[in-house]
Design a protein around this nucleic acid. Structure first.
Length: 667
RNA sequence: GCGCCCGUAGCUCAGCUGGAUAGAGCAUUUGGCUUCGAACCAAAGGGUCGGGAGUUCGAAUCUCUCCGGGCGCGCCA
């Protein structure tokens, strides 16, 4: 870049200085800088004021400056008159063929179409985004390993895995972590059920297929039983202790249950294309005494203090920032650590602040790459995880309060920078519609009769199991594929059905804003029409099919298309006006991919990316319906059309990949 | 009680760092398969953006207030 960040101190400009490849973002940066240069003497502008928006209609222009509004507000004058004056001062801008003042004071810019088109083709397959961190840690999924995964867990994993993908798209080095609470009360409940109620041996359990489904029911039964028998609490407490220390038949059973269920969870997540680098376990945290180190640090830095009397006598507590009268208990009077305390220690490990690490051993494989699980047993592999410079915890909104306390814990330890870079990626829970309840055959209790939705509860065994939903999606997809592509081999049909199920589920989980409660409805989730994953996949499949036919009928191979992309193209000016407008809209809209990816990352709102991809697919479908490619006789028109859909396909496929949605060969 | 979230078309939801005529899918109605795939496309109807007040050139978007719904606030995890 030819200008220095020193002369452009505005936050927005500075932010964009990381990026220097060809894309809409680059054009905007270039224009921002020039507009600032031309106007800074006449107006009290800062580069941050110079923002570009997209006009509501293509005919109004390609980009709009809203600067006159901000400036007129400050100077209490008429924005439209100011816009006129500013436009005159701007004279001409490179890459811009025309400007006009519109509405109440917008300055609309019309871009040089052929230059932009050439730039777009040159930038095919690239992104202008750049990494900003040394290492980003994303923790997601985190399912208690005591029962099958349900739709709530799917929402977590889809959001988390998409965050991982989006960060990697941006160029960040990302570590995907899936925390396993293998010593918690949920596992204890199941172990209690197996040992005390069902009296089953590991050999008995080996014979059970779909072990996660078996535990789903067992957990609900046991939880219900434990509520009726207070005497069992003592036995349960004993078990918890044994499990935490990894001793006795209880410890062995907890290990058996958690590992077997974990394998089932990983298999389920693999179906939606989510994978992990490392699986840190609670048992390792206990075994390696991470807490002791954190506790020492908290005492040393006076982040916590001992309470002598009052209701919290005998506890170590932390003061809360905005609630001065409140004390959060970190260590109980019996000397045990609370959940938040352990979480603070764990968050410290993620940032590499604990000065200790786990040992690791391979647990499973993902595409030939090992997935590592933590262990407290030393080995000489010398592997290290954690130590990120930025951490995202994907956890539902009900844990907001505790996540806040964890961050405050870091502050209390004077790790301010790390506290600022700890993000709770929160999202609303998934609930069931009354219709879904009926479909599951679950009776609705009388007191809940007027409720619009019903909370999913693993404890009550109430919910839609992830694998059941995926099975239904696959089954339906298979029927649809079979209907249209009877000639495909059964294996291909099955593979395609899996890809469609995955695309369908992932889009469904991303299309809603994360803050909105997702009231699950089978009909909606199983739909393949309209704003759905299969619609997006179908669009890509058809685009690919056009290129395939081009090759079959005319020998236009991928290589020759690539040469066309890299070479000179006929001028868009050769197109009739209506078509030129349509092609132009497709080109400018698709060029906002980087901006959309960045916006999604900054707002952690992947529904933006979902809507962008959907809108692009809609425009694209409309385009090739209107303008046939194979049958076009005019070589220039044909070349332009091929290039336009080549550009759009590139963006669409990458947008889907960012969301973890695969593109089948045929469907 | 305190804190956070939600309320937009018949239904499900986008749009919320203020910006041009409030959008999409589903459902309803109508039209389009002999053409690159109809999981598609084209079109129609459908809105006091929960109510009220304020801020301003401009409010679905920001502020206040009220109403309705949800979640959280434990020596549980």
């Amino acid at each position: 870049m030819e200008w220095s960040s020193k002369s452009h101190p505005g936050a927005k400009i500075k932010r964009y200085f990381w990026y220097n490849d060809a894309a809409m973002i680059t054009l905007k940066i270039r224009l921002q800088a020039l507009v600032y240069e031309y106007l800074k003497d006449a107006y009290p502008v800062t580069p941050g004021d110079i923002e570009f928006t997209v006009p509501p209609q293509a005919k109004l222009g390609d980009l709009a400056l809203t600067l006159p509004f901000q400036t007129a507000k400050r100077q209490r004058t008429n924005p439209r008159a100011m816009a006129q004056d500013m436009m005159a001062r701007l004279g001409s801008l490179p890459g811009v063929v025309r400007m006009e003042v519109a509405g109440a004071g917008f300055i609309n810019l019309f871009l040089d179409q052929d230059a932009f088109f050439a730039e777009r083709r040159r930038a095919l397959g690239t992104t202008a985004l750049r990494a900003a961190e040394r290492k980003v840690i994303v923790e997601h999924t985190n399912i208690n390993p005591n029962k099958a995964a349900h739709i709530g867990h799917l929402r977590n994993a889809c959001l988390g895995d998409t965050l991982v993908r989006a960060l990697r798209f941006k160029g960040e080095t990302v570590e995907a972590q899936n925390y396993i609470d293998d010593t918690g009360v949920q596992v204890v409940d199941v172990v209690f059920g197996i040992l005390e109620r069902e009296k089953k041996s590991p050999a008995d359990l080996d014979r059970i297929e779909r072990f996660d489904f078996y535990c789903w029911d067992l957990y609900a039964r046991t939880a219900a039983y434990l509520e009726t028998d207070p005497a069992a609490q003592a036995r349960k407490a004993e078990m918890l202790k044994a499990i935490e220390h990894g001793t006795g038949p209880e410890g062995a059973m907890a290990h058996y249950v958690s590992r077997r269920i974990l394998r089932a969870h990983l298999a389920t997540m693999k179906r939606i294309g989510a994978s992990y680098d490392v699986l840190p376990c609670e048992s390792s945290i206990i075994g390696l005494k991470f807490w002791d180190k954190a506790f020492a640090l908290l005492q040393e830095k006076q982040g916590i203090y001992f309470v002598e009397d009052g209701p919290n006598a005998g506890c170590w507590v932390m003061k809360l920032e905005d609630e001065e009268d409140k004390e959060k208990i970190i260590v109980r009077s019996n000397g045990t650590v609370t959940y938040v305390g352990k979480d603070i220690a764990y968050q410290m490990w993620k940032f590499g602040l604990l000065e200790r690490d786990f040992y690791y051993e391979p647990f499973s494989e993902e595409e030939g790459r090992p997935v590592w699980i933590s262990t407290a047993t030393p080995n000489d592999r010398g592997l290290h995880f954690g130590g990120g410079t930025r951490v995202y915890n994907v956890i539902d909104t009900r844990q907001s309060y505790l996540q806040k306390v964890v961050v405050q814990g870091l502050r209390a330890l004077q790790f301010r920078g790390q506290a600022d870079k700890s993000t709770h990626f929160s999202y609303e829970m998934v609930a069931l519609s009354p219709r879904s309840m009926r479909e599951l055959g679950v009776p609705i209790p009388a007191e809940d009769a007027d409720k619009a939705f019903h909370e999913v509860s693993g404890r009550k065994g109430l919910g839609v199991k992830a694998d059941d939903l995926l099975d239904r999606l696959e089954e339906k997809a298979f029927t649809e594929v079979d209907k249209r592509n009877a000639d495909l081999s059964p294996e291909t049909k099955r593979r395609t059905a899996r890809e469609i199920a995955r695309g369908s589920l992932r889009y469904f989980m991303l299309k809603f804003a994360r803050n909105s409660l997702l009231i699950f409805d089978f009909d909606e989730a199983l739909s393949f029409e309209g704003e759905t994953g299969p619609y997006l996949q179908y669009t890509c499949v058809r685009l690919n099919s056009i290129f395939r036919k081009l090759e079959e009928r005319e020998g236009t191979t991928a290589e020759s298309v690539d040469r066309m992309v890299r070479g000179d193209a006929p001028s868009l000016g050769l197109l009739p006006e209506a078509e030129r407008n349509d092609a132009w809209e497709l080109l400018t809209f698709s060029s906002q991919f980087d901006d959309e990816a960045l916006r999604s990352l900054e707002s952690l709102e992947f529904s933006h990316m979902a809507k962008f991809a959907f809108a692009l697919a809609q425009k694209c479908n409309g385009y090739y319906h209107k303008y046939p490619i194979l049958s076009e006789a005019d070589p220039d028109l044909k070349a332009i059309r091929i290039l336009v859909i080549a550009v759009v396909r590139d963006v669409l496929v990458r947008a889907l990949d960012l969301m973890g949605i695969p593109v089948p060969e045929r469907m």
